[in-house]
Simulated scan of single mutants.
Amino acid sequence: MQYYEDIANHFPGGLYRYVRVESLYDKQSVEHEFFIRISQSFPFMEKLCATDCHPQNKKQSYKSMNDNHNLSIIKYFYLSQLEIE
């Protein structure tokens, strides 16, 4: 399987070494922890499409509590295309 479509907040995780293209679709906000799970589950992701994702709910509270120092950088080593709609 090279494609994984309509990943949402309830995505359970796992390791998908052969998936290269992912699409996110969620009516809820997508938080930082979710993107960490995505990067760990799809280490060879080349393209990510995010559709209808709402702004993060916790973003402002992280910033006010710790000046954003507790949010780790998420690396996508093979990502060459990012589409946000």
Rank of each mutant, 00 (worst) to 15 (best):
D52M: 05
T51H: 10
A50R: 00
S41F: 03
F44I: 00
K47F: 01
I38P: 08
Y16T: 00
D6H: 05
Q40N: 11
F42N: 00
F44Y: 10
Q28D: 09
I36Q: 08
E22F: 05
S39H: 02
F35M: 14
F42H: 00
E33M: 06
Q28F: 02
Y16R: 01
F35L: 15
I36A: 03
F44E: 05
K27H: 08
L15Y: 14
E22M: 13
K47H: 03
A50L: 14
R20Q: 07
E5V: 07
L24H: 00
Y25A: 05
V19F: 06
G13H: 05
K27W: 09
E46D: 06
G14L: 12
C53V: 15
F11R: 05
V30A: 10
V30W: 08
A8F: 11
S29Q: 12
F35V: 07
R20D: 04
Q40E: 13
D52Q: 11
K27R: 06
A8W: 08
Y25W: 08
F42S: 01
G14H: 14
H32G: 06
F35G: 01
P43N: 00
F42A: 02
Q28S: 04
N9Q: 11
R17V: 03
I36M: 08
N9C: 15
F34T: 07
R17T: 02
A50W: 01
P55C: 02
Y16K: 06
V21G: 00
T51I: 13
Q28T: 02
E33G: 07
L24V: 10
A8S: 15
P43A: 02
E22A: 14
S41Q: 04
C53I: 15
P55Q: 03
A50V: 14
L15C: 14
D26C: 15
H32C: 11
V30Q: 12
S23G: 03
S23W: 00
V21D: 13
L24W: 14
H54C: 10
S41L: 08
E5I: 09
E33N: 06
N9I: 12
Y18P: 00
F11I: 10
V19G: 07
F44C: 12
D52S: 14
M45S: 06
F35R: 01
F34D: 12
S41N: 07
S29E: 10
S41M: 07
D26W: 02
E5C: 12
D26N: 13
H10R: 14
E31W: 06
Y18A: 07
K27F: 06
S39C: 13
I38Q: 09
V21S: 01
E46C: 09
H54Y: 12
S39W: 04
T51R: 14
L24Y: 04
A8E: 07
E22D: 08
R37G: 09
Q28V: 00
F34Y: 11
Y4A: 03
E22Y: 01
V30C: 13
Q40C: 04
I7Q: 01
M45C: 12
E22G: 08
S29T: 10
M45V: 13
P12K: 15
I38W: 06
T51Y: 10
A8M: 10
H32F: 11
K47Y: 01
S23I: 02
Y25F: 15
P43I: 00
L48V: 04
N9S: 13
E31R: 03
